[in-house]
């Protein structure tokens, strides 16, 4: 059985059931509550599901991930110290724009594993940068009031004093 996914631009993607099952929204649309009760629902092969918030390029990228994980469980536990597989990190890359689009789409489509991977991808880009570097990267203007800056200086000074008392 296969399901047709329709992107924001109207492009159609024909995906197999194991791949579509990775997408929570599609799974719920295609099978509804009966899926969780264990009944196989006979759906029409020509069934199409419109994903109005996902562009074609992002949907095709997401389907690559779903295809890869159709037979495996992705990492979904952010608490653990488990590292993401090499394939995942190569897949998500370092392009901030694209990762953000994948993140939004994964949230919209309810794909927890991909959502965690996208968060990890963005965190890797931000990791190790000082506040000024993050501002430059994201085009953020520091909007702290004078009082907030004083408070932060005091807090950071307190912390620095703890680490280096001399």
């Amino acid at each position: 059985m296969s399901i047709t996914l329709i992107s924001k631009e109207g492009a159609q993607f024909l995906v197999s059931k194991p791949v579509a099952d990775r997408i929570g929204v599609v799974r719920d649309c295609a099978y509804g509550a009966d899926f969780w009760l264990g009944y196989a629902v006979a759906t029409d092969d020509s069934m199409g599901i419109t994903l109005a918030n996902v562009t074609s390029s992002i949907l095709s990228k997401i389907l690559v991930w779903c295809e890869h994980y159709k037979d495996m469980e992705p990492l979904v536990d952010g608490d653990s110290n488990m590292e993401f597989p090499e394939w995942d990190m190569a897949y998500i890359g370092h392009d901030m724009n694209q990762i953000l689009f994948v993140l939004e789409a994964a949230d919209y489509l309810h794909i927890p594993g991909l959502l965690l991977l996208a968060c990890k991808g963005i965190a890797d880009v931000l990791d190790g940068r000082n506040p000024r570097g993050i501002c430059d990267l994201l085009g953020i203007v520091m909007d702290f009031s004078h009082r907030q800056e004083v408070d932060m200086d005091k807090e950071n000074g307190y912390w620095r004093w703890f680490l280096h008392p001399t």
Partner: peptide
């Protein structure tokens, strides 16, 4: 969720980026 993927030092640093 994105911020929770940072390590502690980066999270402390990120807290002084913007309000």
């Amino acid at each position: 969720s994105i911020l929770s993927e940072l390590d502690l030092a980066s999270l402390i640093s990120a807290s002084t980026v913007s309000s």
